[in-house]
Amino acid sequence: MIEFIQRMIDLAVRYHTLFLNGIRYTVVLALVGTACGLLIGLVIGGLRAISKQMEINDTALTRIIKKIIDIVTYIYITVVRGTPMMVQGMLLWFGYFQGAGWNALAAGCLIISVNTGAYMAEIIRSGIMGIDKGQSEGARSIGLSAWQTMRLIVLPQALKNSIPSIVNELIVNIKDSCVLSVMMIPELFFQAETIAGTTLKVTETYTLLLVLYLIMTSLAAWLMGIVEKKINHRKSNYFSSQTVAEGE
């Protein structure tokens, strides 16, 4: 047991540049994927919620646009969530991005963002449904438009209530970005594969890999816990103060 750990430490020391490099790529993929995914999720989740509301002053054209938005976003969410990211990565990388001369990391960031966006859209949408109807009625009654109501009143509250699920997505992304190694992105899992291949110390390498992932996910959970506490502490002021300040 002690010897096994000793061999793991040796590996870590000998290949620390490779591991660190891998961690860097993994962190970039997870952070970019979660941040961009959240942005996509906010827009798509908000749009989906609005496209389901019928307004009396909707013109025929608006109705058609709403229907199209509803269908298109539904297809996006269903396809992305219903297929493995690894297969999406393989297909898009070898089918398009590689040939088009894309950088692997950029393509990976795009794929993980689009993927996370689909999950985030559903997280945000259920967050929106959890907000009391009175909030939007109050907003509409003073004359705010549907989109203003969504952006200024409903989404900020839905976002705040969704923080635990959003943190969960970050943790999922730290782990699941490993499937993007199929696109030749030298992230942590890719590096471990290389190291295991050259040293043939397979068990040691992958145990070490597990430990590294566990450290990263724990760190993420801990940091986000602090952020969440800050937001809840500042209560209503956090998301709101800038919205009035920025004007239209």
């Binding site: 009391d132 909030q135 009625e137 109050g138 509409r140 009654s141 003073i142 009143i153 998301f239 709101s240």
Partner: peptide, 18 residues
Amino acid sequence: RSEVGMVFQSFNLFDNKT
């Protein structure tokens, strides 16, 4: 709607605002 004020039983103040 902005010309017709509405006061609700459940207040409906914006919970994310001061």
